[in-house]
Design a binder for these strands. Structure first.
Ligand code: SF4
Ligand code: SF4
Lengths: 132, 132
DNA sequence: ATTATATACGACAATAATTATCGGATATAA
DNA sequence: TTATATCCGATAATTATTGTCGTATATAAT
């Protein structure tokens, strides 16, 4: 409960890896997968996803890879999580309404309050807070 | 990602239900399951669990059920989540160490910092904040 | 041009976590 | 004695997450 997914962790590991280099240098999927012991194919998908989101920039061909494109300090963690994993919330009912209890639920309002606290907390941090 | 489990939600719904009654009145599993449209057997397990944790008190036999035993204002949400669902953390490595990346991970420290923020936030609220 | 290396991407498979069900026991008030 | 309720282990179903495979495309180096 309340855990990050591996995909988010892999993304953060990769971003920090790129951040640690001079900005013009590229990092290949294989290089990152090897260094951090991450399954190559999954990391590849994750990086493709980050590229589609314009967070990193792909360089095709041999000696290719990715390098940072976005300013990590401008992406707060809520935005980042949602761009990587989709909608965020302590309960489904905040972005989807097929909860069987939704019409009778007596905790929805208080949970929403707590959810707002959590969202605010993550929004107060940026990806850079993880990669530095 | 970052969602509560149904079990936790069912527990909170039930606790709020009990809290809304005079303290000496009992609530049966069936009564709660019906009113909130929760699968009976799952709710039963959940309430048995809460009883073992001394959060509610079981009354056996016909006209039985449960009533509140603990002071909900004394149980913070971290404690509650952990008593209902086990150890809490944004990543496994804070309570378990079979993460394949653990020896190479470059984000463990910052994630731990963020985890601490999250834990502090949940610790600053009590079950009563949900049930009132 | 050819080759080797790298990303791109859809479809699929395996695993793990969560959620739900079943069967039969014990306690007790009426 | 009976009906109602909790108790509890075992198991099944479902869903979410995580991982794999095959093939296509791009491009730098030779
Ligand atoms: S309606 Fe209530 S039970 Fe359903 S997801 Fe929202 S908070 Fe949870
Ligand atoms: S070691 Fe790193 S990758 Fe593994 S669980 Fe901890 S933070 Fe996540």
């Amino acid at each position: 409960m309340l855990k990050l997914t591996r995909k988010v962790e892999y993304a953060l590991i990769a971003l920090r890896h790129m951040q640690d280099k001079a900005p013009e240098l590229v990092s290949s999927t294989k290089e990152i997968a090897t260094q951090y012991n991450i399954p190559l194919e999954i990391l590849a998908k994750t990086l493709q996803h980050l590229a589609k989101e314009n967070i990193i920039e792909p360089i095709n061909g041999p000696r290719g890879g990715y390098r940072l494109k976005a300013q990590l300090g401008n992406i707060n963690l809520v935005e980042f999580f949602e761009r990587v994993e989709g909608p965020l919330g302590l309960s489904d009912c905040f972005y989807d309404s097929n909860c069987l209890q939704i019409d009778y639920c007596n905790i929805r309002t208080p949970i929403q309050r707590i959810n707002a606290n959590m969202i605010n907390m993550f929004r107060s941090m940026t990806v850079q807070d993880v990669t530095s």
